[in-house]
Computed example of a mutant assay.
Amino acid sequence: MRKVEVTSYDGDWPMKFEEESKQLHHIFGSEMIEIHHIGSTSVKGLKAKPIIDIMPVVKNISWIDKFDAEMINIGYEPKGENGISDRRFFQKGGDDRTHHVHVYERGDPEIKRHLAFRDYLRKHPDILKNYGDLKEELSNLFPNDIESYIKGKAQMVSEIESKALVWYQGFKS
């Protein structure tokens, strides 16, 4: 059973992203256009589940399945789309997850959503604090119930996401 654990920001998370991204560059090679550290571990100062979320952006999503064996060799479990159309998802660490890899094809709107959310939190410390506090509170309320944890933060995530997308569009224009 997965335990829901939210910890204080760990300064080693960016290094863990860099280490893993080197392996992913090696596996995906020229198919990969860019790679991003996303999710809560990518936001300095944000409390988070200690799982490094990585988002490779690739030329053709349909070719990614051919890398499943290589991903398995470095400890990942291929999960296919895992509920999000046109994504390939990999997780590492079983019930004690350490990494999630979310692969999208260039131009997918999910890329902008992830980057907007991350960058918005980086620039808005008051929202970052409120979001981190909620996550910590929910992890204490639901230490063995990931679904309730996710449901508990859904409204705040949706509100932040809406503001972030408007902000990001203005920021990137």
Rank of each mutant, 00 (worst) to 15 (best):
R97E: 04
E159V: 09
A69T: 13
K123E: 15
F90H: 12
P78K: 02
E77S: 12
R106G: 01
Q155K: 14
V57N: 07
E105P: 07
I127F: 10
A154K: 10
V166A: 13
Y76K: 00
F117A: 05
S148Q: 14
S148K: 15
D119K: 14
I64Q: 02
H102D: 07
G132H: 01
E77V: 14
D133C: 09
K66S: 14
D68K: 09
V157A: 05
P78A: 08
H100C: 07
E70K: 12
Y104M: 07
E136M: 14
K123C: 14
W167Q: 02
K66Q: 12
L138N: 10
Y104Q: 07
N130S: 15
Y149S: 04
S162Y: 10
P143G: 08
G132D: 03
S162A: 15
G75L: 05
A154L: 03
D126R: 10
Y168K: 03
I127G: 00
Y149N: 04
D133Y: 01
P125Q: 05
K153A: 09
V103P: 00
F90W: 13
R118I: 03
L121Y: 07
Q155N: 09
D119V: 10
S62Y: 13
I74H: 07
K66D: 05
V157C: 06
N140I: 15
E105S: 03
K112W: 00
N82G: 04
E137K: 04
D65T: 11
S62E: 15
Q155A: 15
K59I: 04
D53W: 06
M55G: 08
F67W: 09
H114Q: 13
D133N: 15
G80P: 02
H99E: 05
Q91C: 10
E77H: 07
R97T: 01
F89M: 08
E137V: 05
G83Q: 09
H99P: 11
G94S: 01
F90K: 03
Q91M: 04
D145H: 08
D108V: 03
S148D: 08
K151N: 03
P78F: 01
N82F: 11
H114C: 09
W63G: 02
R122C: 12
Y168W: 14
D95M: 11
E136R: 10
L165C: 10
P125G: 10
H100I: 08
V58C: 07
P125L: 13
G80C: 08
L134A: 04
K129G: 02
H114V: 06
R122S: 06
Y76A: 06
Y149M: 01
V101C: 01
D96I: 11
K135T: 03
D133A: 14
H102G: 02
L115Y: 12
T98H: 09
I72Q: 12
K92A: 08
M71K: 09
G93P: 07
R118P: 08
I150R: 10
K66H: 12
R88L: 06
K112T: 13
F90E: 05
R106C: 00
L128Q: 01
I127E: 06
G152C: 12
G132Q: 08
Y76W: 06
G75P: 07
K163P: 03
E110Y: 06
P109L: 06
K153L: 07
A69G: 06
